[in-house]
């Protein structure tokens, strides 16, 4: 049996930590952000790349889930078309609270280069968005930085309060 010595006086050595409920809940929420795979177009490929070998999203506790019931954050990666718009609303409604939305890439932010009859000009017309990532397509690093900013945002909130409805443009 392995023997190890625990230095209780050192930082993190104590098996006891005193904190507030807020902090512990937010710590749990912010460090296991499970993302709903909402790969719609090109950005979805970069989202996959950020989950794959080189960028390895798992180390941030971010695991892609296929079901909205298991997801905390919806990463809308790609162009949202008018035909698809109702489904994004349905899936957003199916997510359990607290829930967040990251709009990834120009198309999801504003419609981007597709200023045409068939694209929704920004996903924030349908669902409220917490974070907008620029780029066409954003690099995996951008997505990872975005998720870290989301973690910061989660930690800044009171855990006990119900989420207020967000501004919809």
């Amino acid at each position: 049996m392995a023997q190890h010595k625990v230095n209780y006086t050192q930082d993190g050595g104590l098996p006891v930590a005193l904190t507030s409920i807020d902090k512990i809940v937010n710590w749990g929420r912010s460090n296991s952000i499970w993302a709903l795979t909402y790969g719609l177009a090109c950005c979805g490929i970069e989202m996959m790349a950020s989950g794959a070998s080189r960028y390895d999203f798992d180390r941030f506790g971010t695991i892609f889930r296929a079901s909205p019931r298991q997801a905390d954050v919806m990463i809308v990666a790609g162009t949202l078309t008018k035909k698809h718009a109702e489904f994004i609303k349905r899936l957003y409604d199916q997510m359990t609270e607290p829930r967040w939305v990251i709009s990834m890439g120009s198309c999801a932010n504003t419609g981007g280069m597709f200023n045409t009859y068939a694209t929704v000009q920004g996903v924030d017309r349908i669902i409220p968005v917490d974070l907008y990532l620029p780029g066409c397509a954003p690099r995996p690093e951008t997505l990872q930085y975005g998720v870290m900013l989301l973690q910061k945002k989660i930690r800044a909130n009171k855990a006990g309060n119900a989420q207020k409805p967000k501004r919809l443009m």
């Binding site: 008018k82 718009a85 109702e86 200023n115 045409t116 009859y117 068939a118 929704v120 017309r125 349908i126």
Partner: peptide, 12 residues
């Protein structure tokens, strides 16, 4: 038109 008519603009 490229950017759609009124029906298209408010479809979703």
């Amino acid at each position: 038109p490229l950017q759609g008519d009124e029906f298209a603009a408010w479809y979703e």
